[in-house]
Structure formats: C-alpha cells, structure tokens
Simulated scan of single mutants.
Amino acid sequence: MSRTLNRDDLADLARGAALLGTGGGGDPHIGRLLVDQALRESSGTITVLDPAELGDDALIIPTAQMGAPTVMVEKIPRGDEAVAALRALERHLGRRAYATMPIECGGINSMMPLLVAARTGLPVVDADGMGRAFPELQMETFSVYGVPGSPLAIGGENGETVIIDTGDDNRRMEWLARGVTIRMGGVAHIAEYSMTGADVKRTAVPNTLTLGLRIGRTLRTAREEHRDPLAALAATMADTLYDKVRVLFRGKVVDVERRTEAGFARGHATLVAFEGAGKLEITFQNEHLVARVDGEVRCVVPDLICVLDADTAEPITTEGLRYGQRAVVIGISTPALMRTPEALAVFGPRAFGLDVDFRPVEDLVPG
C-alpha cells in the first residue's frame, strides 16, 4: 500500500538507515539535510510505493551516490547531481521513469532517491537491491537475479554526465564507474539498473524504506520511554525478513586504522571488553565485513554487523568510529534471497577476498 513520507519522518529514517548501512553507505545525516531542504522547496511530501503495486511494465530507475564515505564528510553534494544522472539515463533510453528506487537501504543511499523524488515529483519504490549497504555496484540482488546494471549514468558536481554501457557485465560496469568517480573527486551520483516493475518484484528486497523508518522510530521511542533499545530493536525485527538479532560484543574502541584507497574506505577497528580480556576486531570496506572475537568469527557479510553507542544505541558509521567510544556490536540476519549460493557468490565473504565461508549469525552466536 502506498504512503507519504514527510520531513518529520526523516530523522527516524536516517537513524534506521545508519543501522542498516552496517557502518557504511555514507552518512545518512547529510542526506537527510539535503532531502529536508528539497522538501521545504517543494510539495513537502514524497509518495512511497509498495513494490507489489507496480505495474509489470512500469520503468523504474534507481538512483544513488557512489564513492568513499570518508570523502562525503568533507565533500557535500550540490544536490542536483542524482537528478542529472537520472535525466541523462532517460535520454539515453528514450523513456521517462515511472518511479525511482534505492539501490541500497543503508546509509545516505536511503536518502538519494528521496532527494530525486522531492526535486522531480517522482514516487519512490519501497524496496532496494542490497538489503543493507555494499561497496560495489555489482553487489545487488538485481544483479544476482539477472538484471543488468548498465547502461549507467554518472552525474558530477560540475554538471558533467557520463554514460557507461557494458551490457550484462556488471562487474566491469563497477570498475569503469569507480574510475570515473575517482576522477570526479571520489564521490559521484548515479542512475542504473533500469528495470520493469516485474523485475522489481522478482529481484528486490521489499519494504526496506519502511523497515528503516521503523527501526529508527523504535530506537528513538525506546530511549524516550527509558526502555532497553536493544531489546526493543530485537522485538521490532522479529516479524521482519531480518528476524535474528545477536549481541556480539560490548566494549571500548581502542584502535581504528582507516585509509581511503581506490575509491573505498578500508580498515580495521579494535574494541576491548568492558570486563575481562576479550577483544573484537572488525574489518571493513566502506561497510563492516567480518567481526572476530578473540580470533573467532562471530558475524560475516552479508549478515549485518552494526556498531551502536553503548548508552544510546545510536548507530556509529565507519567514518565516525573514534578511540574511546563505548559501543555494543550486534549482528543481524539477512533475508533468505541474500543467502542463496548465487547471492553469496556475488557478495558473500569470498567476494571480498576473505578466507572465510559464510555461516549465519544465528549459528555463530546461538540465541
């Protein structure tokens, strides 16, 4: 069922998107401010469509930002780059989009389609192609289940646009687009994976914008009512496609090694336990990929690894990790269509060069 989204919803959605971003996806707070300003200048609401309501022949063009999240902290978008990419792809296809959609529901890319919607009047489909955030463009459920990502349009901050068409080779599309993005300063905006409504219903993770909004609202109201936000989160997730929540570790951040290379933020974060001698290490590439406690894997991609403030349960992004932070690290199970052999071949641990096989978080940390 379709619904409207307004400025009052943005803070909760940004909080939920930060959690679903598993540390990456870009800071949703910046995206929230961009959408808020666009809504002030427009009708003030955005129409969000349930994917089940889409006509099979409707043209859906997802929009997003790509690049290193660490660059985004200092390189704020102008605000019209994603619209320019969408319009360039429409011209290339010779068709206008019926709606836009997120490629990922985590981080700033939960907000980019909303920014496009606020500036164009297009509706936004309540679904995405990652069910979280991933660092590379071929790492999409769209790609896994047969939708080509190209032709892809890239929009830069100086008004330039680039079209990349690699046919059904989504990995090469990512490689070329990453190179263009680096030359645009490390951040660019894109329109890609144009598809029909039938394709959306077949390949997308459904209702993830609603999920992000629900997560953010749950964490906020639990704090306001002086309830345990982690218990409230687990209860909220229990009737969703992300139904297993596990506490992996509680401790203090004692080291963060972070570098920006080849268009990604890569590194490690180390936490030591509040009590005892335990140690957790997280490896990330934009997003958290694997969490090890005393050398043993406790959660691994594509399951979600989320770092939250120990007192407020506010999500902490990879670029926001700092020495001395008190944190709780949780693991969350991903939907079944993200755990198939086909999906794991595209965005499982081996796809990131990790010498680890995927095991569900609920098996690694029994409830």
Rank of each mutant, 00 (worst) to 15 (best):
A351V: 03
S42K: 03
G216Y: 05
I316D: 04
G159Q: 04
E81V: 12
A188L: 00
G295H: 02
H288M: 09
T166S: 02
E174G: 00
R322H: 02
V35N: 13
L280H: 03
F249W: 07
G23L: 00
D169L: 00
T161R: 01
A345D: 01
G320D: 15
Y145K: 10
T208I: 05
A97Q: 10
D80R: 11
E90Q: 05
A68E: 01
R258H: 10
E53P: 11
R3Y: 08
E275T: 15
E275M: 10
R119T: 11
A17Y: 15
G44H: 09
C306V: 15
P315Y: 13
Q37C: 14
L49K: 01
G21I: 02
I46F: 13
D50A: 12
P51R: 10
G156D: 11
L248Q: 03
R172A: 06
L271M: 15
I164Q: 06
I305A: 07
D294K: 13
Q138C: 06
V35W: 06
F274A: 08
G31A: 13
A82R: 03
P335M: 04
R172M: 14
D80T: 15
D128T: 02
E140F: 03
V346K: 06
T166I: 03
G278M: 12
C299A: 15
R339F: 04
G121K: 11
A97L: 06
S333A: 05
P151R: 11
T70A: 08
A231E: 14
E319M: 11
L19W: 07
A99C: 12
I215G: 04
P69W: 10
I332T: 06
L54S: 06
P69L: 11
L114W: 13
G106M: 04
G212P: 03
L213K: 10
V293C: 04
M66H: 07
T45P: 01
V147S: 02
T218V: 09
G185Q: 09
I30K: 15
T221I: 08
L33C: 15
Q325A: 07
P341M: 03
L20D: 08
T166C: 08
D255C: 10
T120P: 01
R359L: 00
A99V: 02
T100E: 00
R202D: 03
D50P: 10
P366E: 02
S194G: 04
S150P: 05
